[in-house]
Simulated scan of single mutants.
Amino acid sequence: MERLQKIISKAGAASRREAERLILAGRVTLNGRVVTELGTQADGEQDVIAIDGVNISAPKEKLYFLLNKPKRCISAVRDDRGRRTVIDLLPEVEEYIYPVGRLDYDTEGLLLLTNDGDLMNGLLHPRYEIEKTYIAKAQGVVTGEDIKKLCRGIMLEDGMTAPARAKLLERADNGSWCRVQLTIHEGRNRQVRRMLQAIGHRVQELKRVAFAGLTLEGVPRGGYRSLTGEEVARLKKIAGTAAGKPAGNARKES
């Protein structure tokens, strides 16, 4: 017997933290009965567990996909408001898969999807400091002093950010906008947007171009591809799951 949220995570249906949120929201059933207690125990082999009416089970085959998420698309399995989700972009995939972290509705770019709960938890765990690189189009022109501030860390309402890597890529001739590349390893909500806003530059467009060493090369907007065996092995190594040991509770990514 194991805790319900752990079984859900192992099945690749959600990270443990997301599974806890689903349970508390009354969206999980155990043998047909709604469960809202986080301490609930279950047998992953014998019990019937469902999320929003969809049965989950330990995946027969581990699947790993890299998606180039477009704007106006939800990083979730389903949306109560009927908006398009990232799962809708992979109609040929019949197994239950789940996005590794989230990109905002209006943010585009690289997003991984898998049914490997241990890898998902590892990639989202703060101890492994998985790098994520974004390109932002922002109002005005980021100055050299602004770049230094981003690299040192920015004080936000939820505390100081960790040091980042930042550089100016492009600027409009009239100084109305610029493009900035920013690499972070934290997973705070809307972190890149808030960091740039804090130094006076509102983000107009945002795209994640790299995650854990993977890039969007060869993947068009709205398209996806399977990860290679070498890529999966490398992800497991940096996420602390290469030996088959779970990395611990995951943290939601922004």
Rank of each mutant, 00 (worst) to 15 (best):
E2S: 12
E2H: 14
L4H: 07
K6V: 02
I7W: 02
S9M: 04
A11W: 03
A14G: 07
A14V: 13
R16M: 03
A19S: 15
T29H: 07
L30Y: 10
N31S: 11
N31E: 09
E37K: 15
L38T: 05
G39Q: 14
Q41M: 12
A42D: 03
Q46N: 14
V48T: 15
I49Y: 03
A50F: 06
D52N: 15
G53D: 09
V54P: 09
N55V: 11
I56K: 04
I56M: 06
S57E: 13
P59W: 05
L63R: 11
K69P: 05
K69C: 00
P70R: 08
P70H: 09
C73T: 15
D79L: 10
D79F: 11
D80K: 14
G82K: 10
G82M: 14
R84V: 15
T85I: 13
D88T: 11
L89T: 09
P91R: 11
I97C: 10
P99N: 07
V100P: 10
R102I: 13
R102Y: 10
D104A: 12
T107C: 11
G109K: 02
L111I: 15
L112V: 02
L113V: 12
T114H: 04
N115D: 07
D116P: 02
G117M: 00
D118A: 07
D118T: 00
H125T: 01
H125A: 05
H125V: 04
R127M: 08
E129Y: 08
I130K: 14
K137N: 00
K137A: 02
T143E: 07
T143L: 05
I147D: 07
G153F: 01
D158A: 00
M160Y: 01
L168P: 00
R171G: 04
D173G: 13
D173N: 14
N174F: 12
N174I: 09
T183I: 11
I184F: 12
G187M: 13
R193N: 04
L206Y: 13
R208S: 02
V209S: 05
A210K: 15
A210W: 13
F211V: 11
A212S: 12
G213D: 10
G218V: 04
Y224S: 09
E231Y: 08
L235V: 03
K245P: 01
R251Q: 14
